[in-house]
Design a protein around this nucleic acid. Structure first.
Length: 149
DNA sequence: GCCAACGTTGGC
DNA sequence: GCCAACGTTGGC
């Protein structure tokens, strides 16, 4: 799950956890939130538009999907005037901070890893802000030396 | 329902 | 700041 650290960093999550993963405005991501996640699932916190961009740590899904309140807030950057309160268009889930890696695992390092060639975030042109990770990919990333305390 | 134009994402 | 990739919009 991607976030720009300038907007919301893993330290922000660590400071106030759990938190709403707000602002996703993409129909594919909506399906992931609604149907592809379960309470207790683990997720990588991916820092995008960062130096370096890459995996910064681990969090956990701790709620079911429910309407993202920012879509109804005219003062919010994520306000969607086309989303009626009675039929909300966008959902989110609550996430809880679990762990910050000792270093960010840069995207370039993920791309070089022989076991991660099929990982969705590594694929060219892939811009979704939320993407699935297979158990195998999860294990490979977590086993990278020197990232865990 | 097609598709060109436009906007956004996000790595580099 | 550039630009590839791709989603969305809107005219027809």
């Amino acid at each position: 799950m991607k976030s720009e650290p300038d907007v919301y960093s893993i330290d922000d999550l660590a400071a106030k956890s759990p938190a709403m993963w707000e602002g996703c405005r993409n129909y594919t991501v909506r399906i992931f939130f609604r149907d592809q996640m379960a309470i207790g699932d683990l997720a990588f916190f991916y820092s995008s538009n960062a130096d370096p961009s890459g995996i910064a740590g681990v969090m956990q899904i701790v709620s079911e999907a429910y309407p993202d309140p920012t879509q109804f807030d005219p003062n919010s950057h994520y306000f969607d005037p086309k989303s009626p309160v009675e039929a909300p268009r966008w959902v989110l889930r609550d996430v809880a901070f679990l762990e910050k890696f000792k270093r960010v695992i840069p995207l370039a390092e993920l791309k070089e890893h022989p076991g991660l060639q099929e990982m969705m975030v590594v694929k060219k042109g892939q811009r979704l802000s939320v993407m699935p990770v297979t158990p195998e990919e999860w294990g490979i990333v977590m086993a990278i030396p020197g990232i865990r305390g």
